[in-house]
Design a protein around this nucleic acid. Structure first.
Lengths: 126, 126
DNA sequence: CCGTATCCCTTACGATACTG
DNA sequence: CAGTATCGTAAGGGATACGG
């Protein structure tokens, strides 16, 4: 940026800021990736639960509900006993998994940089 | 992922998960980008404050302190009156601005997808 | 200008127990 | 299996006033 550039970045409703804020929810991005990583783009509740060590059933359900409201995933209930519920990325979800995968790949390829970080930077919650 | 793939992703200390969790702090990524976007890679407190509409002085200072502890930024005090304090990306900060820029660019280029999202997805906090 | 110091409230999140 | 229902805590974060 040149010296004279106006300081008006990060308007509260600008697109980049909204993307960043998507990640302020702890589990959303990890759920998106997990669904994306599966061969059929879908996963049942239990599979997601086992894929995300540390998540409680409460948070998993709650986050999935929010993602459904947001249009990122769809929910399909199989009427059998015991019940089987499947979650699947929507087309919108497929769009949003793109930036998630960018971050995922960066993390995978830069573990050393992460190790150099003071612990507190990545352990605020959890 | 093939059907037989083990479900063991997202270990609690794996690199990708730690990257994701970096973004769970509201302002860190925006500060990183703002510093990166400036021609000299540095900015004073007041500049950052004006660049981030909505942030309080308290949160700005607090976040900068945490980033300093984490080794992402360095802090330089000019002993003048009124005081002038400058923040600058460290080499480690330069590394971490990479994924931030990836997200920033994605947001800039996909504003339409963001508009398609239900509002609540990006307005949990703030 | 660059902070600190309080005060206060909301929420995110986890633990646990219970249900069809 | 896939949820609800409660309860509880800690952290995030804003508002405001004051200080060097």
């Amino acid at each position: 940026m040149r010296p004279g550039t106006p300081e008006q970045e990060w308007r509260e409703d600008c697109a980049p800021r909204r993307v960043m804020e998507l990640f302020t929810t702890k589990w959303t991005s990890m759920i998106l990736h997990t669904l994306h990583a599966r061969h059929d783009g879908a996963a049942r509740h239990g599979v997601l639960h086992r894929s995300l060590p540390g998540i409680s059933k409460k948070m998993l359900t709650q986050t999935l509900r929010e993602m459904e409201e947001s249009g990122l995933v769809s929910r399909h209930v199989e009427q059998v006993v015991p019940p089987a519920v499947e979650y699947r990325l929507t087309p919108l979800g497929e769009r949003f998994v793109e930036p998630v995968e960018l971050l995922y790949a960066w993390g995978r390829d830069n573990a050393d940089a992460l190790d150099a970080l003071t612990p507190r930077a990545t352990s605020r919650r959890g």
